[in-house]
Amino acid sequence: MLKIENLHAKVEDNDILKGLNIEVKAGEVHAIMGPNGAGKSTLASVVAGNENYEVTEGTISLEGEDLEDLSPDERAHKGVFLSFQYPVEIPGVSVTNFIKTAINAKRKANGLQDMPAGEMLKMIREKSALLEIKKDFLSRSLNEGFSGGEKKRNEIFQMAMLEPKLAILDETDSGLDIDALRIVANGVNKLKSKDNAVIVITHYQRLLDYIVPDFVHVLADGKIIKSGGKELALELEEKGYDWLVK
């Protein structure tokens, strides 16, 4: 599904990723952990195509296609989804209007007509039930005045609606109370299939109790320095990162 080889990236003059390799296959869940400033969020942004980051070396490919020349929206059309750590507010644009615009943009790029209103409504109903989202929530302005939990739930709701091939969840657990965490994780688990893949970026083992990873990677100083199974996350929880980072 996703193959990243020898990825180097910088923002302004700071080198952040320094030769990162990772391969994620369809049907897998990978967790990326690591100390603050290791480059976890940068990795998410670079895969999504954020133009504030410059890729200086290496390749990112999705299902064998090089993503380098694709703009963020084109990558989204190919099935890349990023659940933001800090989702932005768009005043006056309702949750429904936003997701409708996004879905139809993706369909248009893939040569399809707009989704018929009835079908859209049905899908919104199903997916909002999955994330225990109430109806009035859907008509609120996107992320405006949302609590931390509401923002993250809305991110996963969008993921559910867009049905991406590759979903990157950037610290989706931060700012969530235990109930919200359960709802969000539950949503992600229900969306998992043999045809898609999920990368979970997190600081804490806690989220991984709910979304169980197949692989855990430690990212430090711009590189993956250790990979293992889900037990690695428990070990990190216990020992911290210091024993790995010299």
């Binding site: 195509g49 133009e51 059309h77 933001f84 932005v88 768009i90």
Partner: peptide, 26 residues
């Protein structure tokens, strides 16, 4: 904001359409 545009782009909405969306919301 660039962050607003990137957010829309990431959801598959191109920059032109994103501006229209943001302005209409405003």
């Amino acid at each position: 904001g660039e962050d607003q545009l990137f957010y829309c782009n990431q959801r598959g909405i191109d920059t032109e359409k994103a501006i229209a969306l943001i302005v209409n919301g405003f």
